[in-house]
Design a protein around this nucleic acid. Sequence first.
DNA 1: CACACTATATATAAAAA
DNA 2: TTTTTTATATATAGTGT
Lengths: 208, 208
Amino acid sequence: MGRGKIEIKRIDNLTNRQVTYSKRRAGIVKKAKELTVLCDTQVSLIMISSSGKIHEYISPSCTHKNLYDKYQQVSGNNIWKPHYERMQDNLQKLKEINNKLHKEIRQRNGEDLDELNFQQLCGLEQNMEKSVDCVRNRKFHVISSQTDIYKKKVKNHQVTYNSLLRGFEERDANCQYASPDFEGDYQSTIEFATENPHIFAFGLQPQL
Amino acid sequence: MGRGKIEIKRIDNLTNRQVTYSKRRAGIVKKAKELTVLCDTQVSLIMISSSGKIHEYISPSCTHKNLYDKYQQVSGNNIWKPHYERMQDNLQKLKEINNKLHKEIRQRNGEDLDELNFQQLCGLEQNMEKSVDCVRNRKFHVISSQTDIYKKKVKNHQVTYNSLLRGFEERDANCQYASPDFEGDYQSTIEFATENPHIFAFGLQPQL
DNA sequence: CACACTATATATAAAAA
DNA sequence: TTTTTTATATATAGTGT
């Protein structure tokens, strides 16, 4: 290989080693290229010098990942495969669960009932009636607590208003203001709520 | 490189190409080994021939994965990341959708109503009442078609029974059998169904 | 450090076994 | 086929610029 046979052992001199590395690196890359073209071979070559510098060659129109994957497939010990498969499994399971959930929702929405038998339909009906009751109860609870809050607010305002009135009366006895009846009740609050739908936004969850 | 300069282009003759591949493969592996020892370099070399056979060289005390990981770190373009991230994203999205579906089901089951306002509760209630109607209708449809089927079956059996009777009567005029009234109706069929719950299995989908 | 030179060692194409 | 042989092309260590 040059002026005298060299034995293949680590070159101690750093400079020489680096020089040799440059030359041989070029050489091996050239060989890789030739192999690629001459023999229609896909070659992936990665070299990392002791100083950490990285050089590579990869045949045109393929990637390192590509070749590495193939290598793993053949060598059998694919490191990523278990990972991938586990994720794929999870994905699949989640999709199935999603489908089931969708179906359940559709059934609870009165669709897709064809495959339920009489017994199941009875159960579903009962269940839904019970659930409607829950919703109704909750609705009344919400509206009554809303009403209480409004009542309190109105009362507060009335108190303030009255004290203001008294203040005015003390300063100026000319005028008399009538205090309107602000007594809130369930019905009026419901009307308030239903006449102002813009303050609520009702929407069931989208189903992808 | 031999008896006459060769130009670097694909060797058309299959045999020659294979021979050349063997030789050059040995050559490049030898070079890789030398580079490893002489220059203290980590080398990963993977070759895949056009026929699909795989050959490799990897410096001692390191793995291909090792070098590929380092290569990725330095070159910055993680070759597995896109794959991985896409799967992770999908998983995440599916989980979110699942959660939403679960929530919707819980709400349609009368649970978790705290975060719904009055307007939403009204909508939900209305929706559920409409759905219960659908289920009820379906239930009646199922039971009435079931009833029809049973009626027909009973009629068939009766016909068979009667013709058998007639056969017996013709052979043996001694005995007289009364034919019971098998006329089925809606109520009796419902009772049949509800008194034999074991022939149905009602169960909403499990939630993971 | 990067290139050029050059004597040798290696690699290898083609042919032969 | 694969291996061996052999003639030649390449690669490259050591050196110089």
